[in-house]
Amino acid sequence: MKAMTRVLALGRAELTLLGRNRLALHVAVLVPPLMAWAMRRSIGGIDGLGLGETGMSLDELALTAGFGFVLLFVVHQNLVSAYVARREELVLKRLRCGEARDPEILAGTALPAVLISVAQCALLAVVGVGRLGMRGPARPDLMVAGLVLGIVVCATLAAVTSAWARSVESAQLVTLPLFLVSLMGSGIGVPPELLPAPVASVCELLPLSPALALMRGGWLGGMGAYAAIGHVMTALAWTGMAVFAVKRWFRWEPRR
C-alpha cells in the first residue's frame, strides 16, 4: 500500500508538471488524433492497393493507426522527454534519496502518460463506433491486452531511450527511430497483410507490432489463440529486454 501511495503521489506531481508544459500537453492530447486524421486523408486511395482483402475499411485502418500514434506520442515520446527533464533537473537524483524505490520513481513518472493514453484509446473507439458508424470490437479482451502490452513496451523503451539524450531538446531526436520503424513496419501506415511475406515476418518482430496486431485483431476479430499467444510472447520478450537495459543503462544523474 505504501508503494502504491508513493507512486500515486509521484504521478500526481508529474501530472501537475505536464499541465504546466503546454507544448507537451498539446502533443500528448492533440497530435495522435490529428495524425490519424491526416493519414486517413492522405491515403484515401489505398483501397486500390487491395485494402479490402485485409478485411479492414479505410476508417478502421485510420482508427488502429490512431492507437499506434497514441502509444508513440503519448507514452514513448512524452516519457522520454519527461525522464530526461527530471534527470537534468536533478529530480530523479533527489527522489532516490527518499523512500521511493527505483521502479516506483519510474512508474510514478509514467503514470500520467499511461492514464492519458488509455483515455485517448477509449475515446477513439467511442468516436469510431458512435460517430463513424464502425463495427464494435469483436474481441475486447485482445484489445485490452494489446493496449496494456503496448503501454508497457513503450514505457520501458522510453526509459532506455532517455539514456541517449543529453537534453530535453535532443530527446525529440532519439525517439525518431522507433517512430519511423513503427510507422513503416508495425501496421500503422500499411497493414502487414499488404507487405511481402518475408518482410511481414520480420516486421512482426518489431517492438510495437505485437501490441498493434492484438488491438487490430481485437477490433476486427479472426485472430486465433495461437497467433494471439505468439504476439503476447513477442511483446513480453521486448519488455524483458527493455527492463534489463533500464537496469543496465538508465541514467539517474545529468550527463556531463
Rank of each mutant, 00 (worst) to 15 (best):
residue 232 V to Q: 10
residue 196 P to Y: 02
residue 124 L to T: 00
residue 73 F to L: 13
residue 89 E to C: 07
residue 101 R to D: 14
residue 215 M to W: 05
residue 27 V to Y: 02
residue 48 G to V: 01
residue 130 G to S: 13
residue 106 L to K: 08
residue 13 A to W: 12
residue 199 V to F: 02
residue 246 V to Q: 15
residue 81 S to R: 08
residue 222 G to S: 07
residue 214 L to K: 09
residue 26 H to W: 12
residue 188 I to P: 00
residue 1 M to I: 05
residue 59 D to W: 12
residue 56 M to G: 04
residue 10 L to I: 15
residue 23 L to P: 01
residue 96 R to S: 02
residue 6 R to P: 09
residue 62 A to Q: 00
residue 117 S to D: 06
residue 15 L to E: 03
residue 3 A to K: 13
residue 6 R to D: 11
residue 103 P to N: 10
residue 75 V to Y: 02
residue 103 P to M: 14
residue 44 G to D: 15
residue 100 A to D: 03
residue 114 V to T: 09
residue 168 V to E: 13
residue 201 S to K: 11
residue 107 A to R: 03
residue 101 R to W: 10
residue 72 L to I: 14
residue 252 W to S: 10
residue 147 L to W: 13
residue 22 R to W: 10
residue 78 N to D: 09
residue 31 V to K: 03
residue 170 S to Q: 14
residue 210 P to S: 12
residue 188 I to C: 04
residue 20 R to M: 08
residue 5 T to K: 14
residue 172 Q to I: 03
residue 46 I to C: 11
residue 15 L to G: 01
residue 45 G to E: 14
residue 100 A to H: 01
residue 124 L to Q: 00
residue 27 V to L: 12
residue 32 P to A: 10
residue 253 E to R: 10
residue 102 D to A: 13
residue 249 W to Y: 06
residue 120 Q to C: 07
residue 36 A to L: 04
residue 36 A to W: 01
residue 133 G to C: 07
residue 123 L to G: 15
residue 208 L to K: 11
residue 226 Y to N: 07
residue 64 T to V: 14
residue 151 I to A: 02
residue 25 L to A: 15
residue 42 S to G: 11
residue 166 R to V: 15
residue 236 L to V: 10
residue 78 N to M: 07
residue 64 T to P: 01
residue 169 E to Y: 06
residue 172 Q to R: 07
residue 239 T to M: 09
residue 40 R to F: 15
residue 112 P to F: 00
residue 141 D to M: 12
residue 59 D to Q: 15
residue 188 I to F: 04
residue 107 A to G: 09
residue 197 A to R: 14
residue 20 R to W: 03
residue 56 M to W: 03
residue 251 R to H: 06
residue 62 A to S: 08
residue 250 F to V: 03
residue 92 L to P: 01
residue 161 T to Q: 07
residue 144 V to R: 02
residue 106 L to T: 04
residue 247 K to G: 11
residue 104 E to N: 08
residue 246 V to H: 12
residue 198 P to S: 08
residue 156 T to D: 03
residue 97 C to F: 04
residue 231 H to Y: 09
residue 4 M to H: 11
residue 125 A to K: 02
residue 211 A to T: 00
residue 224 G to H: 03
residue 244 F to Y: 07
residue 2 K to V: 13
residue 62 A to H: 01
residue 225 A to M: 11
residue 4 M to W: 14
residue 92 L to I: 14
residue 197 A to C: 11
residue 75 V to T: 10
residue 62 A to C: 09
residue 118 V to T: 05
residue 155 A to V: 10
residue 178 L to V: 15
residue 99 E to V: 08
residue 242 A to E: 01
residue 213 A to K: 05
residue 191 P to R: 00
residue 66 G to H: 14
residue 234 T to S: 05
residue 200 A to C: 08
residue 194 L to N: 04
residue 160 V to E: 06
residue 85 A to P: 03
residue 193 E to A: 04
residue 200 A to V: 08
residue 177 P to G: 11
residue 96 R to E: 03
residue 20 R to V: 01
residue 14 E to D: 11
residue 49 L to Q: 02
residue 73 F to P: 00
residue 50 G to L: 10
residue 250 F to M: 08
residue 37 W to D: 08
residue 60 E to T: 11
residue 17 L to N: 05
residue 205 L to I: 13
residue 169 E to T: 10
